[in-house]
Write a protein that binds this DNA or RNA. Structure first.
Lengths: 187, 187
DNA sequence: TCCAATTTTCAGTAATTACTGAAAATACTA
DNA sequence: TAGTATTTTCAGTAATTACTGAAAATTGGA
């Protein structure tokens, strides 16, 4: 129904897609899912499952699994064309929005449960000297993770424009910090 | 030579260690390595390979592999006791230092190579309209990753004390940003 | 309702990754 | 130097994870 895909991916796209597949497997996302998403990010037009499978040389069912996973991560939107029943998928325009979603999902799935385990451990009564030390360490880890979580939440609430501005401060972060310290009178 | 380990891990330690093993596998570090490191962080005293293996019920050789990997990440220090040839391992006191090391190593191994692939792609001459769009996206991804990298570098250069202070700003990040915006006169 | 197009599921299999025991290498002591 | 304690390596195997094709389920139209 919609025009064919010619060579599917240019050599440039192939390299980047392959790299993101590689990255994906290092970050606990499977290679195929990483490749699918990279392809959708790089592709000008939305793609259907058959096109994705053909471009990446994977089975239709594997594409379906991958899309299901990406969907559960809230990283896809779908488009339909008149006279064509197929679903066409694409990635958000705003690359920062993608990053925000990734951070938020990852936190929800991995950091939050760990924080909960750490909190449980902190509620318990130490059984011996070893537990006393362990709790000290658990407390440190808990605080660290909670603080980083809070910062990431802050980041996620900034608009893309604000974020860009913040990041452009670059080497100025330490200075802003010192300044703020003086401002509020905190040491 | 050195006293025995009694029950090796308290129930509290067991739960936290198990959770970090689980976490490890989601972050592309293998479960065993995650468990070994959690154990070392929680343990008051340095442990030798046999103690680690016994506590986690894994073979001596697997412990050796795990320690080797952790060593390559610069996350261990070793201790020796007089009259005992064994190596005893432990994790740094400062939990923020551990985080800094993790961030730095991860960047070196995964982000930097990806940035390099993206830069290569940007140097190429687009072959057709699809490449033009792909390059636009690659450019966005490149900038995003480079900016995040720079921020993480900034973070890593702050002292633990500065970092703690910064993170305590918490909900104030957006405000600091706006303030700095006014200060420098940038929109 | 039935039919055809499309997507999803899932049991079986392939591919990858992790783990072990035995052997080799290394480090220390005398 | 030989002898012993300790660590590392690595081929084989186990366990896990990813992928496929066929079948089932779903969707939209007549």
């Amino acid at each position: 129904m919609t025009g064919d895909t010619k060579e599917l991916m240019t050599p440039m796209m192939q390299k980047v897609v392959a790299n993101f597949g590689e990255m994906g497997s290092r970050w606990g996302i499977n290679r195929t899912v990483g490749q699918i998403y990279a392809l959708l990010v790089l592709s000008d037009v939305p793609l259907n499952a058959d096109q994705i499978g053909e471009a990446l040389c994977i089975s239709r069912s594997n594409v379906s699994m991958g899309l299901k996973e990406l969907g559960s991560w809230q990283l896809l939107s779908t488009v339909h064309y008149p006279g064509d029943r197929k679903d066409y998928f694409n990635a958000p325009e705003d690359i920062w929005q993608i990053a925000r979603t990734l951070v938020a999902e990852r936190r929800k799935r991995e950091i939050d449960p760990t924080l909960s385990v750490l909190r449980d451990a902190l509620m318990q009564t130490p059984q011996d000297e070893r537990d006393v030390y362990a709790q000290k360490r658990i407390h440190q880890m808990h605080d660290l993770m909670e603080q980083l979580t809070q910062v990431s939440e802050e980041f996620n609430q900034l608009s893309t424009e604000q974020l860009t501005r913040l990041l452009k401060l670059g080497a100025g972060l330490g200075k802003v910090l010192d300044f703020k310290g003086k401002l509020t009178g905190k040491s």
